[in-house]
Nucleic acid binder design. Structure first.
Lengths: 187, 187
DNA sequence: GTCTATAGCAGGATAGAC
DNA sequence: GTCTATCCTGCTATAGAC
């Protein structure tokens, strides 16, 4: 791997572990093995490196998401598959964990985060609509609201798991959502 | 208000706005009008002040929570009232926003946060159980999972609202949860 | 109880040699 | 492209006078 790539990889790790504000250029340099000079040669500064890193993270997460949601299973089953994907609850969401940081005021840094969430909500809403067309879901249900709620359950699961230092919080939240999905399914 | 109380008030505000790590003793001093000397006279350091402040915040939030959940309405209605409480989505949860901070490794600081979430989950689960006893909710539903899920929806609502800089994300997530609650209610 | 002075250290970045 | 030296600022706290 090139020095530049090493820097990005280290940044991705540190952003997950510590978030943006607590990720110091020094720490990135130490973890990547790159020196001060290399850091500022390849990137204008911390913000630019983080932007690059977060965009890669968002791409990876979209791929993971698509793997579950774009299979050839029935629509509602694909939504369930998304909910059931494995998650490292105690580490937090790689993108959602930035939600409380000042970072969000910087347009470039918020973009990968907001566009990822927008994408997942739209795709889930589309799957739910398809379920309505297939007749497995009541037409009276607002698919946008349910999609937003499902993404919120996952993000909230991370928050609770970390706050209580208990990964089962995520499992319980997901199981609750799966239960309710079962209830609204038409068989 | 005493100097000590001014310090605590300023800390509560700053913890909400910036979180623990970004709350500097200097900022607390400036906002409270207290000097360096007063700060370290009343508190051993930043961690002790924050612990005091977070405990007060947790108390206040429990009161707000109880106002909705402990009325004389039917059980499920009380759960809905909790979900419908007004929230400043863009500011984030006063306690949940700390979930990603290193702070959590300090036992004293995590306690007010974790015990608040534990409390809300238990109370909601109790209300749901009561609904089962009253016959308005199917016995087959796991009340613990649903309670955790509902608290997660609120926390996730905050995350999404901030990530997308759109308070409606909270409303949509809540509305989705309310819809599903309606669906599982026995009438 | 409150004030001012000071300390030690880390963050984020620039400068210029190689 | 990479290295070392250096800069300025803010964080968190201690010291000691008043």
């Amino acid at each position: 791997m090139s020095t530049r790539e090493n820097l990005i990889t280290a940044a991705k790790e540190l952003l997950w572990e510590r978030g943006y504000e607590a990720m110091s250029p020094r720490a990135v340099q130490e973890r990547s093995g790159a020196g001060q000079g290399s850091f500022y040669h390849h990137f204008a500064g911390k913000a630019e490196l983080a932007t690059t890193a977060l965009n890669e993270v968002a791409d990876e997460m979209r791929e993971t998401f698509n793997a579950a949601l774009h299979s050839d299973k029935p629509s509602l089953e694909r939504v369930r598959d998304y909910l059931k994907q494995p998650r490292e609850a105690l580490r937090g969401c790689r993108l959602g964990r930035m939600a409380q940081e000042e970072v969000l005021s910087q347009e470039g840094l918020r973009h990968p985060i907001s566009s990822y969430f927008l994408y997942t909500q739209q795709e889930i809403a589309a799957a739910l609509k398809q379920a309505q067309n297939e007749g497995s879901l009541s037409e009276s249900i607002d698919t946008t609201n349910i999609a937003t709620m499902l993404v919120a359950v996952v993000q909230g699961g991370y928050v609770l798991a970390r706050a209580l230092q208990d990964p089962q919080q995520m499992d319980q939240a997901i199981d609750g959502a799966l239960t309710l999905l079962d209830t609204i399914e038409r068989r």
